[in-house]
Design a protein around this nucleic acid. Structure first.
Lengths: 342, 342
DNA sequence: ATTAATAATGCAAGCGCTTACATTGATAGC
DNA sequence: GCTATCAATGTAAGCGCTTGCATTATTAAT
């Protein structure tokens, strides 16, 4: 045991190595600005003292944290997991650390998290979707924190974004639903309030219906939280309708998983009696039975590109471009012709 | 636009309110140490300037961050999601913020993350499982950072922990497998290397076999990463064995989900031809078909208790107790008698 | 050898905040 | 009315690091 040693500081290292703190700092941050022999001596001291730089002090002095913050709506399910993992990996490659927090789809909570992340010295922020008070953007501007929107593509928006066209992607899916012969269409959507992705997807379905000459006012929509149970619940409700819809388009795979699960519970055959579709193509989509026909979103690609763009912005190498990621339809087992046509 | 304002500091607020920085600081941190009138004036200034305290500066000066770090092996699947969410919620209630990072089951990465979190001023750390270099604990001690182990319970260990008895829980499951009549048992385990939970679960199966008078050397074990694909892969391998095992005990629900999925693909009926069991009882367990017989782990309870214990440790109110969470068997559809007995 | 240029290192001023201690003002006891 | 007490506020010393600038050592060019 001996005496209580407390954590060594830069100063301790400097003394141990017989150099100034400036030199130690340079050894750690720009090794090539220090001569080999000195560097070795310093590194040796760092090693033997078990020195870890104090992050807060570094941030304060350098006004740079090499930290990127991300606020995602939820960590509860896998919707954001893959994309975020890729984002983090790429960030790491670019020399940054990721700080994540989740807002639980609550704008107030999101605002708070943004402030927290900024206070913690985040150099840049990843935000999901465009819908957000202007005040927040002003705040970020004042603090000179670049921010990038992901999971949504909107060339019209003021802010740069990396994402896909939610409307078009869903529209493509809905077209294929319609061309399979479905006319009585229902949708389980995420809460559209303040969620441009959910809005876009709903819009996509409407658009496809219009194109197909269907009356969009016939579209039954249930809005609910993106949770398996909620999907199940909504599905049960829809199955009580008369006439029953022949297809249930879900706002994402999580809802769809809940739906097919509920169908089995109710003894309704998917896709023989009713078809179900998802969105995202997360792992779950393939695991449930029947496997989901869905829209594949290249989350990894999106995550990586977002990371590169955001670091470029942070480093002043980019003003913030808007990047479009393309999705594609994945045909599996949960979508078929409506029963009366087969 | 006007002039480029930069983020206001404590000093700016102090000037605006006509008080000293000390008073502003007190307003923010111990409001009752400042008289009502002054406080109002200060708060007004804070509001109108849109002031957000600089976290790094605060941490540096106060040597306290009200931040707890957690290093979990993976964010990829839902294994830790629920428990971590509960941990975070409780932490928030106790006035702390959570910083999460994932080590990808790599000890070297974990060590690095620990250092990062400590450097970032974490007041305490949540670690998963006991297996870890002594050197790491020494490091934490030197920095005086309390740490708590979760997801594993070990009264023998030096370190406090909040978790469940992996061995006993799995043993109970295995007993019920054996009493269903299974003799040709296989297991898809997580990587046991440096993972006391995986080790414990494997050990639990062995123990139940011994109790049941079976030869543990007959147990086929495939160790693999906790991923759906890997579970599927391992399952396929096991099905190639002659004689084929009648039950596949999986180290967790993710592996089991992969297994039942692969079974369907191979046209093998679960549980009619082969039984499968999981562990954790995450959402996935109920969604796959057949629904998994598994061990229910009260993740939320564990997360909450861990949060309370760890904050107590950080605040010097506890030396670090070891808390045991109890699990229970959940019987669903994936386990039945072996075929030749039915 | 001498000087100019350049590389390596040291010096010291902060970064924005908290807090021990000093100071001031108010309240109360005599 | 005067001093002891205590509450409210101010003063200023850091916290551990980075970095512009000053200083010294090294190398190249004349």
């Amino acid at each position: 045991m001996g005496k209580t040693r407390s954590a060594p500081t830069l100063n301790d290292v400097a003394k141990a190595a017989g150099v100034s703190t400036a030199t130690v700092s340079r050894c750690l941050n720009s090794p090539d600005r220090v001569i080999e022999a000195t560097r070795q001596r310093v590194m040796q001291a760092v090693e033997s003292l078990g020195y870890t730089p104090n992050f807060a002090a570094r941030v304060m002095a350098a006004k740079r944290s090499f930290t990127i913050g991300a606020i995602i709506p939820t960590m509860d399910n896998a919707i954001f997991a893959r994309g975020l993992q890729a984002f983090q990996d790429q960030l790491h490659e670019n020399g940054y650390t990721l700080l994540v927090s989740s807002s639980a789809y609550d704008p107030e909570a999101e605002r708070e998290q943004i402030r927290t992340l900024v206070a913690r010295g985040a150099d840049g922020l990843l935000l999901i979707g465009h819908a957000r008070d202007a005040e927040i953007y002003e705040y970020l501007e004042r603090h000179q924190i670049p921010s990038l929107v992901a999971w949504s593509y909107d060339p019209e928006a003021q802010r740069p974004s990396v994402g896909f066209r939610n409307t078009d992607a869903m529209c493509e899916l809905a077209r294929s639903v319609i061309s399979a012969g479905h006319r009585r269409i229902a949708m389980i959507s995420g809460m559209t309030q303040g969620n441009d992705r959910a809005q876009g997807r709903l819009q996509g379905v409407r658009q496809a219906m219009e194109e197909g000459g269907l009356d969009t006012s016939d579209l039954k929509v249930i809005e609910t939280a993106y949770e398996i149970d909620k999907g199940a619940e909504a599905f049960a409700q829809l199955m009580d309708l008369t006439p029953r819809p022949t297809v249930v388009i879900c706002g994402n795979d999580v809802l769809a998983a809940g739906a097919v699960h509920e169908a089995r519970k109710l003894g309704i055959k998917v896709p023989e009696q009713v078809s179900v579709t998802g969105f995202d193509d997360i792992e779950l989509a393939e695991i449930v039975s029947p496997a989901l026909t869905t829209v594949h979103v290249p989350h990894r690609e999106m995550g990586r590109k977002a990371a590169c763009e955001l670091t470029a912005m942070v480093e002043g190498k980019s003003e913030g471009r808007t990047i479009c990621i393309s999705t594609r339809l994945v045909t599996r087992d949960s979508l078929a012709m409506p029963p009366f046509l087969s």
